[in-house]
Structures are given as C-alpha cells and as structure tokens.
Amino acid sequence: MSERRDALLTLDDVGYRYPGNERFVFEGLDFSIGAGEFVALVGGSGVGKSTVLRCVAGLIEPATGHIETPPRTGKGSRPSAVVFQDTRLLPWRRIRANVGYGLSGLGLSRGERDARIDEVLDLIGMADLGKRWPHEISGGQAQRVGLARALAVRPQILLMDEPFSAVDALTRTRLQDELLAIWQRLNMAVLFVTHDIAEAAYLAERVCVMRGTPARVVFDERVPSPYPRQRDDADLNAFAQRVADAL
C-alpha cells in the first residue's frame, strides 16, 4: 500500500498481554497513520481494539514492539487526545471546566485557555451550555463535550474509543456528520475504534480490521468513496460488505 502522507503514528510489531497472563490479546501489529488521516479500527468485542488505542495514547505499555508517537508540537497542544465511549466527564466540573481539563500545564495563560474553551464549545455548537453541570445535559451533548475536551488540546491525532456506541441511532448519525465536518476543518489525524462496520466505512478514509486470538490486522484498505459520502452509496456498501467478510 502506498503511503499518501508522512507517517504520524507508527506501530511496529506491537503486542499486548495482560499482566500475569501468558496469552497475547494481539500481536504483530504493524501499521501507521499519516498526518491528517482518518483511520477506523474495526473488530469484534474482546479483540483488543480499545487496548490498541490505550497503547497509542500511552495509557498502558505494550508488551512487545514499539510505538512511534507524534512529537509534541508547539505551545498549548498535546500529541494525542482521547475521546472515551463513556464520555467520562467529571461530574464535579461544569461543562467549561471539563472542556478545559487538558489545558493546564500547557503554558497557556488564563485568557488563552478561556479563548480555547470558547472556540471548541462553539465548534460543537454548545457555546451557551458551558455553565451547566454534566448531569444537566443529554447523552449526545455529553459525547460532544468529550470531543471538545479532546479538541481543546489541538491534538495531532484524535483517539476515539467507540465514541458513539452508547447514544441513540438518530444522535449517532448526527454526531458522525459533525465529526466529519470538524475533521475536515481541523488538520488532525483520527484513529476511530468501532465495532460498527457501516460507521467505519462511512467515516474513515481507511479501514483496518482486527481478528483472531491473538488478534492481528487482517484487512487494511482505503475506502473507495470520496467525501461527502451518501450513506446508501453502492460503492460504500460493497466496501462495507468486504469489511464484514474480513470480520
């Protein structure tokens, strides 16, 4: 496969097993993500796709192999930022404070932090809800706030762990379109973990499939349809079918 862009993130023969466990969850993972590229990682439950994401985020150490992460660029940014499935908003912080959670320690002044929070709240269309507590907003809004919290640190790669799987279908399609619009506006790569094939095919430029015990990447292809995509596009559906077969 030809690399369209310079690799931003590279996994080199990466494997993981839980501490004290002989059996690898996955091993021999070799793939890279280019700057600004949108990659979906698909797999059944228990295949370790969220664990891959945690390794990439630096939250856990892989047992084998090496992960080349993006260098820290400039003031006020982090190389990567995570969006969790369970939103993980801190209930004791108002929405604004949740969005600004990753901004401390980045050398930003209070004014710069406030401006950054306003900017991303605006981006997710929640500019007027910053004073609310997390329990006062809907599930879809909470997911948007989780996204805003990650965007606020201007990551080079956004790591999304099944971010839309806990919201209703209507909200999900809306959030997917919002994510695409934001991704196209900001120059950042996305690693999107999901078990939903249609979602992966609709969103990503490239889809990777993990399968087996221990799991490996068994499928890694570009999505043929250009943006903007139609959900009922024939090429897209044919591609989704091939992903399903690989699973």
Binding site: L59, R78, A81, D86, R88, Y101, G102, S104, G105, R149
Partner: peptide, 12 residues
C-alpha cells in the same frame, strides 16, 4: 478508577 485514566490522558 476510570477517572484516573482520564487524568493520565489529559496531563493530570
């Protein structure tokens, strides 16, 4: 404990 993971992910 998931909050501690969040803290690690966001520089806390």
């Amino acid at each position: 404990p998931r909050y501690y993971e969040l803290a690690r992910a966001f520089g806390h």
